[in-house]
């Protein structure tokens, strides 16, 4: 019985994933979605990767981190510098492109490991500010390095990221995080969020799992960064400052800590709302801010819960925490 449920859920998700891809692709081919909206779709997918991966560290592991954009930038710069030097612009080789992306993601993982080992013993707000500090240090380093062309930004990155790539990588990210949290490893990670001491005393190697979740989260942030760099073709350190980290955290919290569908929907909404408001350009951040405050207050009052609980995808058991008290 267990086997059946596991299989059907995975298969269902897989089917949904393919269906959405086909629909979007048809819409793009028939020009219902023009190239502008194709770009928006790509950014949506990148943001979903970022939100889903941060959810692993913040939502499931329960560690409030504000450095996700830092890992994203490590992935972006590493992959971009590699692809420029490997002459990807002329070769356009998908293999090299994917290898560059992986190199970026692995670099982000290594930096995550380097940062995670010392600072993951900090708690709550202290961890939050320490990760923010690392985010800013990474940014300052990129501003001052020669190979990154400093604050002027790295230009001439080959345009490689298309909808197919981001969609596949997004699907892989969602799948891996889903598979991870729905395994013994995921239970260990969630138990740390629930009660770190009880988790240790149930035999969970807490430090290992804290670092694991943090590092996997950094890996996918690095991947998202690589995709972003090869979509924008120009990247600047200022893009990856703590405001970007905040933006990703907002998606995770708004979508519900430890909820994958929530993260996906919140990432979509928070990417689309500013796009839809583009004609009110000067008011759009204002509206965004008001929507954000209103959404948080509504969510706090339980109104959102009541509405969302009517939706079918919420029927799956869902674990939520209120963060660190």
């Amino acid at each position: 019985m267990v086997k059946k449920i596991l299989k059907s859920k995975t298969l269902g998700g897989f089917g949904l994933c393919i269906a959405v891809f086909i629909i979007l692709n048809v819409l793009m081919m028939t020009k219902v979605l023009n190239s502008y909206w194709r770009g928006v779709a790509i950014v949506c997918c990148i943001n979903i990767i970022l939100a889903v991966s941060l959810n692993l560290a913040t939502g499931y592991l329960g560690q409030l981190t504000l450095g996700h954009a830092g890992f994203m930038s490590v992935g972006a710069y590493t992959s971009a510098i590699l692809s420029i030097h490997l002459g990807l612009k002329t070769s356009q080789s998908p293999v090299i492109f994917i290898l560059c992306l992986l190199a970026g993601a692995i670099m982000a993982t290594l930096i995550g490991l380097l940062i995670g080992i010392p600072i993951l013993r900090l708690r709550g707000d202290y961890l939050c500010i320490a990760t923010l500090a690392f985010n800013e240090i990474i940014r300052v380093v990129f501003v001052n390095l020669e190979i990154t062309n400093g604050s002027k930004g790295l230009i001439g990155i080959p345009y490689m990221t298309n909808f197919l790539y981001v969609y596949i990588f997004m699907a892989i990210t969602i799948y891996v995080v889903y598979a991870l949290v729905n395994s013994r490893h995921g239970r260990a990670i969630i138990s740390i969020r629930e009660d770190e001491i009880a988790s240790e005393l149930a035999g969970i190697p807490v430090t290992y799992y804290k670092i694991l979740a943090f590092v996997v989260s950094a890996f996918f942030a690095g991947l998202a960064g690589g995709l972003y760099a090869h979509y924008m073709t120009i990247i600047m350190p200022s893009t990856f400052d703590y405001n970007k980290s905040v933006e990703i955290l907002v998606m995770v919290v708004l979508g519900g800590m430890g909820s994958l569908p929530g993260s996906i929907i919140a990432a979509l909404l928070l990417t689309l709302i500013p796009e839809l408001l583009i004609q009110f350009s000067q008011y759009r951040m204002l509206i965004y801010a008001i929507v954000l405050i209103a959404a948080m207050i509504l969510k706090g009052s339980g109104a959102g819960e009541r509405i969302l609980s009517k939706l079918p995808f919420r029927k799956t058991k869902r674990i939520e925490v209120s963060g660190n008290e």
């Binding site: 919290v253 951040m285 954000l292 948080m296 706090g300 963060g323 008290e325």
Partner: peptide, 21 residues
């Protein structure tokens, strides 16, 4: 105030909203 007792993360995000506003 409406979020008091709801966990500090929600309030943190609201505060970020206020800052943007």
């Amino acid at each position: 105030k409406p979020l008091r007792g709801k966990g500090s993360l929600d309030i943190l995000i609201t505060a970020i909203g206020v800052s943007y506003l």
